[in-house]
C-alpha cells in the first residue's frame, strides 16, 4: 500500500526558508533565490534517508563555495577559515534539519538516518529506484544550492537507516 505523501514544493520551500532565517541568513538580506532549474550543477552533497512509513531521501546539494559560505555562516567564522571537517559537519546538519522536519509531516512510524556527506556532485550519487517528488532549486549569493526529496519506488529497496 502506498502512502500519499503530503510534502509538496511549498512545504519544502518553507522549511528551507526557515533554515536560512535561522542559520544562513539571519539578517534576511541574502535569501535563496529560486531558479526552478532541476539540473543545476553541484559539487558536494549531503543526504539523510527516511525509512518506515515512507522510504526515501532528502538531499542537500550545492557548490563548494556555497558549502563554504554556509559553514562560515553556521559556525560564525570567515569563509577562508572553514576546514573540510567544518564543511562536512555543516552539510550533514543541513540535510538532517530539513530531513527531520520532512519526517514530522510523514505518517507516524518514519525513521531518520544519520546524515551522509559526499564531497562530490549529486549527479555521482543518484539513488537507485527513486523518483524526485519535490525540490527547491536556487541561487544563494550567486552559488547554486538545491534541496530535493526522493521517494524509493520499491519498498524492498529500503535502506538501513536509523
Amino acid at each position: 500500500m502506498s502512502v500519499e505523501v503530503e510534502v509538496n514544493e511549498n512545504d519544502l520551500a518553507e522549511m528551507v526558508e526557515q533554515v536560512w532565517e535561522s542559520y544562513l541568513d539571519p539578517e534576511g538580506i541574502n535569501p535563496l533565490i529560486p531558479t526552478y532549474d532541476e539540473n543545476q550543477p553541484s559539487e558536494v552533497h549531503s543526504s539523510v534517508s527516511i525509512s518506515g512509513s515512507w522510504t526515501g531521501h532528502i538531499v542537500y546539494a550545492c557548490s563548494i563555495e556555497a558549502a563554504r559560505r554556509a559553514a562560515a555562516a553556521f559556525l560564525a567564522m570567515e569563509p577562508d577559515e572553514v576546514s573540510q571537517e567544518d564543511l562536512s559537519d555543516v552539510l550533514g546538519e543541513l540535510a538532517n534539519i530539513v530531513g527531520g522536519n520532512v519526517k514530522a509531516m510523514l505518517p507516524p512510524g518514519a525513521f531518520l538516518s544519520l546524515p551522509q556527506v559526499v564531497l562530490a556532485p549529486e549527479s555521482t550519487a543518484r539513488f537507485p529506484n527513486t523518483e524526485r517528488i519535490s525540490g527547491v532549486y536556487g541561487i544563494w549569493d550567486g552559488e547554486p544550492v538545491s534541496i530535493s526529496m526522493w521517494h524509493s519506488r520499491a519498498d524492498n529497496n529500503q535502506e538501513d537507516g536509523a
Binding site: 526557515q18 533554515v19 532565517e21 535561522s22 534539519i97 530531513g99 527531520g100 514530522a104 507516524p108
Partner: peptide, 28 residues
Amino acid sequence: VTTESEQSQIVRALAAGAHEYVIKPFTE
C-alpha cells in the same frame, strides 16, 4: 533541541522530564 517535531514526540519528551523543547531550526 531537536528536529523531532511531531506533537507526540514533544509530549513524550515532556513526560520523560524535559522542561522545554526547541525545534530545529531555531534562531538565536
